[in-house]
Simulated assay, not measured.
Amino acid sequence: MSIAAKFSNDPLASASDAFSEIIKGVVQIWRFYSHCRRNPKIKTVNPESVGMLLTLDPWLQMSHQLDRVLEHARKIASQIDRHIIDEDCKPVLFCSIDDFENTLEIASEESLIGAIRVTSKPEFRGWFLFNVHQRTSVEERRNPYPFADRVADIIPGWSDKALALSAPEDTV
């Protein structure tokens, strides 16, 4: 999302391509719910479930454009699939990848799902998932970095043996 689009008088028009992709993501989530409702053999969906759309940038979740995005998504959903009903239009959490990763660092499976569900409540509208989790979870934890033992495999100069100084026995 460009700076001009973020601060224009009509961001949906100024950045129609970017918003179009976000709107398509919302419609895709609702189509999934609709297909599951119509054919329970596909997947049974928890009635409290919340869709999640990951973004690169946290701007949308803090903006005043959420209602307009959802309004456009409803119009497109009704044009694409007439079987999508209000029941299928579950809440959708717009979450930046950074926010999601930061939340994963401190969340258990249960507390993550609980925080995601709570984001659909009006009092948490526009909040970051991380902050919702902090507010609603009673547990305090720090999950270990899942790739800690593999960093040297991914980044060649990371291991102490790869950073030889003047002599092979002098390493960082």
Rank of each mutant, 00 (worst) to 15 (best):
I22V: 07
E139S: 14
I22M: 05
E140W: 03
G25Y: 14
D10W: 02
F147Y: 13
S137A: 14
R135W: 11
C95K: 02
M62H: 15
Q79V: 00
V132N: 04
H133L: 10
S34H: 07
D98S: 04
F124E: 11
F32Y: 00
P144A: 05
H133D: 01
A73P: 09
K90D: 10
S14Q: 13
L66H: 14
L56P: 08
I84R: 06
A4Y: 09
R38Y: 02
L93S: 05
L129Y: 02
K161R: 15
A5W: 05
I76S: 15
H133Q: 10
E105D: 12
E140V: 10
A167K: 15
P122S: 08
E140M: 08
I22W: 00
E140S: 00
I3L: 14
I154Q: 00
I84G: 03
P47I: 00
R68F: 01
N46R: 06
H35T: 11
A5L: 10
R125F: 01
A162H: 11
D10M: 01
I116S: 02
N143H: 03
G114A: 10
N143E: 06
S34Q: 06
L163H: 15
K43N: 01
D160Q: 15
W127N: 10
S111H: 08
Y145N: 13
W59N: 07
K90W: 03
A164H: 13
S34T: 06
V26N: 09
A18R: 00
R125W: 08
S120Y: 04
Q134C: 14
P122M: 09
L54Y: 01
M62D: 10
I84T: 07
N39E: 10
K24D: 05
A107H: 02
D17G: 00
I113L: 14
I155G: 13
C36D: 00
R31T: 12
L163M: 15
R68I: 00
